[in-house]
C-alpha cells in the first residue's frame, strides 16, 4: 500500500469531531441531525456494522428552544421501580435541574434501540454553555449547520440603530401604546 493510499484510508476512517451550537434550536429536530453524525449516516461508506460514527460536541444546551408552551406541557417520566415510584417532571423543571438532560434524551430517543446506541451516545458531548474543555476543543474540525438562524432580539440591537430606523407612522405625543 502506497503512502498516498495509506493516508487516504486514514482520512476515510478517521473519527471527526463536530461542533453544534444548540442556541435557540429545537432539541428534538436537532437530534435528528446530530444522530446522522453520531452514527456516521452522512458518510457514503456507512454500514451498520462498520464503526464510522463521529464525535459531536453540543454547546449552549441551556439556550435550547422548545415549541409553543412545551416547557410547561412536556413531561419526562421516571420510575424508581418501587410501588408508587412513578414521577412526571415538567420540561422546565428538568432543564432547571440539568440543562443538558433534555438534549441528551432527545438524541437518545432519536436513535433506534439497539446495542450500538449506548456506544453512539458515548460520542456525544453536551455542554450547557460555551465553556468547553481545551482538550475537547482542540479536536474539533467541523461545525454542523444550525437548523435555523438565531434571531436578533430588539434589546440586542444598539439603541442608536433603533432610533435611526425609518418610521412608518408617527404617533401623536399623547398616544398610549398597549
Amino acid at each position: 500500500m502506497s503512502i498516498i493510499q495509506r493516508s487516504q484510508q486514514w482520512g476515510t476512517f478517521a473519527r471527526i469531531w463536530h461542533l453544534y451550537d444548540a442556541k435557540w434550536q429545537d432539541p428534538y429536530l436537532s437530534a435528528e441531525r446530530i444522530k446522522m453524525y453520531l452514527m456516521g449516516l452522512y458518510k457514503p461508506i456507512y454500514h451498520p456494522l462498520n464503526d464510522c460514527g463521529d464525535h459531536v460536541v453540543v454547546i449552549n444546551s441551556y439556550d435550547i428552544a422548545l415549541r409553543g408552551d412545551e416547557w410547561r406541557r412536556r413531561a419526562y417520566f421516571h420510575h424508581t421501580g418501587y410501588h408508587g415510584g412513578a414521577s412526571w417532571t415538567m420540561a422546565w423543571e428538568v432543564h432547571k435541574k440539568n440543562p443538558t438532560m433534555i438534549m441528551n434524551k432527545a438524541v437518545y430517543k432519536s436513535m433506534k434501540g439497539n446495542l450500538q446506541r449506548r456506544y453512539s451516545m458515548q460520542r456525544l458531548h453536551i455542554f450547557k454553555d460555551e465553556n468547553v474543555p481545551e482538550n475537547i476543543m482542540q479536536n474539533i474540525s467541523n461545525q454542523i449547520k444550525q437548523l435555523r438562524p438565531v434571531p436578533l432580539r430588539l434589546d440586542e440591537i444598539p439603541p442608536q440603530e433603533v432610533a435611526e430606523f425609518p418610521k412608518l407612522v408617527k404617533y401623536p405625543e399623547n398616544y398610549i401604546a398597549q
Binding site: L41, Y42, K43, P44, I45, Y46, H47
Partner: peptide
C-alpha cells in the same frame, strides 16, 4: 435499504 442510505449521504454531500 443500505444503498439508499449511502446514496442519501453521498448526494447530501
Amino acid at each position: 435499504a443500505l444503498w439508499e442510505t449511502r446514496l442519501h449521504a453521498a448526494s447530501e454531500e
